[in-house]
Design a protein around this nucleic acid. Structure first.
Lengths: 335, 335
DNA sequence: CTGAAAGCGCTTACAG
DNA sequence: CTGAAAGCGCTTACAG
């Protein structure tokens, strides 16, 4: 039923190898022969079997993307990463096997050891991520999006959250703010080992205290009505704060209505700075001054590096941590 | 470097076929032989090569999921579908190849004709979706999530949007509402052929007019600040409306703050009914009375049917359109 | 209960 | 410029 390279060869009156060389372009072929073969391919509507090719060449042209859905989490950002990863991969002729097993490590072992993919992208990497050992033992290269505690020997791409925090604090300090509140991701993100939470928070606190600012930090929430409740609790607890630093998508999305309820105007009564994906902001919140979390840049750079490591290992350099520098977009929510 | 079934056989002192039968369980094996082979597998850390197995068995154990990211669209719902699809597939031992090419049809042909997958799930299906022809010509079965104009010969799963609209209108009519406004998905969704938009709207209008209600419909927007602006325009245009039917995620997410700005209380001054995914509601909006769009149910049922068609074609029945009945969850935003 | 052989659909040295 | 052959790593009739 399925058309194979043998059918094409017979139809064109040539050897299977000749058809293969027409396909790959790895050998000069006479004009006449090429024409006949191309015609046969069209007539029979032939497409090479990817599995057979993979078996022979030991290349699947597939990248594995490993991610986890967390019950209690706000996930739209995940989609931004996926889009950047898939479209970059496709540019280079690679498809994406998306693996979402709750058990990250066994799934990673299963997929890599059965040679289903040529390389691996780990998303949502935590401080002591169990998948890292499996990745180090895999025969395929891998890249991480998200900085773990021990990144040795691995390519890592992440936003520079510490520097992001410093940029934000410097911005507020420069505008004259002396008392601020920082809203971090929810507690369960910290407990799970989501290092971006404390990397941002700790750097923000340190910088602010270094300036002599009064500063407090608070966990945000990920679900309503707790999101609103926690924001109100922060505002109640810090009546003299003049600026809010919000590092939590659910909170920043809820902030406009919470502030309105309290008759607090931005930036007149309160300055607000946040950190989120540009697209998230476009679709959702009011335009706050914010650091762009740049999932598109991270996804694109991670895949590019992974492909370099797959295709030109010697040119890929030593595995390294790549922290991309934060960009603050001023949108008028601070003064 | 890579361990093959031949290495295991040599190590255990048996034939490759015997190792294979231990793996598959397709033949009785003596206790002693099985023990030796299992030990060799463990010692050598052997995992069968998925590609070789696929080539021989003509089964990849991979499903293709085809989706498109639309520049201007609010996409979190997509993630709900993906989660349901991947986890259902994994339950049955299948992995997911996620394809996001903007050119849906060629991508579908490429993946199916090269035999990369055993079956296909199409997401975000439009009224006259170019991918349907490619799917009908594919050797693999496929299912759609989203009802197209011509679903003949294909398994389709979708929410019953027309019935959803009738349930919503009946609910409002029963509470005594006589003047309402319906907010649909953005115009570009209609232009692209997103049939769920007009299926819901047209049924709502028909039912409401049938009751003699005053009713108008409006396109929502997908990006701020247009979302807020359009909501305000609707409220300005319909000062006597007592209920809002909102079929648009971006609009319902923005509604709380818009209504607060206008000092409109729900449900005292205005009743609100919507249609969205339960998880979306949990994380985002205030709890509105709504039809659950049930991406989890749709994804799970679609994959289950697809696998039936792959594994037991004779038991899968004729391809059919499955519209799941809407469930209205009353949350106190209407009266 | 187990083995030797054929073959899935390709690619690529090896020959001419 | 082209062909015949080997082989990628499996599975499964065919034998015994």
């Amino acid at each position: 039923m399925t058309v194979t390279i043998g059918d094409v060869a017979r139809h064109a009156g040539v050897a299977r190898s000749t058809v293969s060389y027409v396909l790959s372009g790895n050998r000069p072929i006479s004009e006449e022969t090429r024409r006949r073969i191309e015609e046969a391919i069209r007539d029979l509507n032939f497409t090479p079997n990817a599995g057979a090719r993979a078996l022979k060449t030991a290349q699947t042209k597939v990248l594995g993307v490993f991610l986890q859905f967390h019950e209690d989490e706000f996930a739209p950002a995940m989609l931004q990463y996926l889009l950047a990863i898939t479209s970059t991969a496709r540019t280079y002729g690679y498809d994406i096997l998306m693996v979402t097993d709750p058990s990250g490590e066994p799934a990673l072992r299963r997929v890599t050891s059965s040679t289903m993919v040529d390389g691996v992208v780990l998303l949502d990497v935590t401080h002591s991520d169990a998948r890292l050992n499996a990745l180090r033992e895999a025969k395929q290269p891998g890249v991480l999006i998200g900085l773990p505690g021990s990144p040795e020997g691995l390519d890592v791409f992440d936003l520079d959250f510490a520097e992001s925090a410093r940029v934000v604090i410097d911005h507020l300090w420069g505008l004259g703010h002396r008392e601020i509140a920082v809203i971090s991701p929810p507690l369960h993100v910290f407990e799970r080992g989501g290092a971006y939470g404390w990397r941002f928070r700790d750097a923000a606190m340190e910088r602010a205290l270094g300036y002599g600012m009064r500063v407090s930090s608070h966990y945000g929430e990920s679900q309503q009505p707790a999101v609103n409740r926690s924001l109100n609790a922060v505002l109640d607890a810090r009546p003299d704060a003049t600026a809010l630093v919000v590092h939590n998508d659910a909170s920043i999305a809820a902030l406009p209505s919470v502030l309105r309820d309290r008759a607090v105007s931005v930036p007149e009564d309160m300055s607000v700075v946040s950190l989120y994906a540009r697209d998230f902001a476009r679709q959702f919140t009011l335009p706050y001054t914010a650091i762009d979390s740049a999932p598109d840049v991270l996804g694109q750079r991670a895949v590019t590096q992974l492909l370099r490591r797959i295709q030109n290992p010697q040119q890929a350099g030593s595995p390294a941590v790549h922290l991309i520098p934060p960009g603050l977009t001023v949108r008028g929510s601070t003064r």
